[in-house]
């Protein structure tokens, strides 16, 4: 069993680690080494020029800032909206809960591309096209169904006795939510925040359709500009820019993961 676990872990690490290793390796290679038919695992003399080229490329820093701003705000709003919604859905008994959950989850069945054209036309009509506000609203909408489903699980884990104790003490439903449920589902909120942030950070479709013009670009659309036509492209700077673009999400995950684990343990002790 232990051997199987070790083999599984090694396989998992290679499966996910190798592409990342290759990305970092490519970012440090010279142009002629990148497409070489000789297998170069890692350049003997790492070339950092790709990183300076990536950073100096016009628009990349603006795009990074735009991505950070849009992802942070979207993640905050998603988290804020999800918690009370999940509480309501989890607490409701009978058909409402089932219908609400089913409706929200069924919206996940349709690919985003199906809704993009009608949404685009609506956005142009109501003046939300090419605005960060419009994009943030869309990201929140796209993030909500899965976030709600995720948070609902955390709310359901809150012992009913605690909620009832709050009510017996005279607290209203809102007060129970604010003073009892929200602190207890903080780990869930962090998970939702991480999910919404990463999902928005990596999204290409909304950014390319709803945000146009140089000053509105996000990192994903800027990264796509490193690739030219017919398989040609600036692969070294592209790899370097991709490595740099992973850092914020990685940092966020590392910082919040520690917090997440700590809160999980706290929850365990309480229950």
């Amino acid at each position: 069993m232990k051997t199987l676990r070790v083999i599984g872990t090694v396989f998992f690490t290679i499966f996910f680690g190798l592409p990342l290793f290759w990305l970092v390796s490519t970012s440090l290679k010279q142009e002629l080494q990148i497409g070489s038919s000789d297998l170069i695992w890692f350049p003997t003399k790492p070339d950092w020029a790709n990183y300076s080229e990536a950073v100096n490329r016009s628009g990349i820093l603006v795009a990074a800032w735009n991505s950070l701003w849009i992802s942070t705000v979207s993640a905050f709003i998603t988290t804020a909206v999800t918690a009370p919604a999940a509480y309501l859905v989890a607490q409701s008994k009978g058909w409402f809960s089932k219908v609400a959950t089913g409706w929200v989850l069924s919206s996940q069945v349709f690919p985003s591309i199906l809704t993009v054209f009608p949404l685009f036309l609506i956005y142009v009509k109501i003046g939300l096209f090419n605005t960060f506000t419009g994009a943030i609203i869309l990201y929140v909408i796209f993030n909500l169904p899965f976030s709600l489903w995720l948070q609902r699980g955390f709310v359901k884990n809150v012992p009913t006795e605690i909620l009832e104790a709050g009510r017996i003490d005279g607290a209203s439903g809102l007060k129970v939510l604010r003073y009892v449920v929200l602190p207890l589902i903080l780990p869930g909120s962090i998970v939702v925040f991480i999910y919404a942030f990463i999902n928005t950070w990596n999204n290409f479709l909304v950014a390319t359709v709803f945000l146009q013009g140089n000053e509105k670009q996000t990192l994903t659309t800027q990264l796509a500009r490193f690739i030219g036509t017919e398989g040609l492209g600036l692969f070294g700077p592209f790899a370097a820019a991709t490595v740099l673009s992973v850092i914020p999400t990685l940092l966020l995950f590392i910082v919040l993961q520690r917090k997440f684990t700590a809160n999980l343990v706290a929850g365990a002790v309480k229950s």
Partner: peptide
């Protein structure tokens, strides 16, 4: 001038 990728 607005620069976009091919797909975009």
């Amino acid at each position: 001038l607005e620069l976009v990728d091919e797909e975009g």
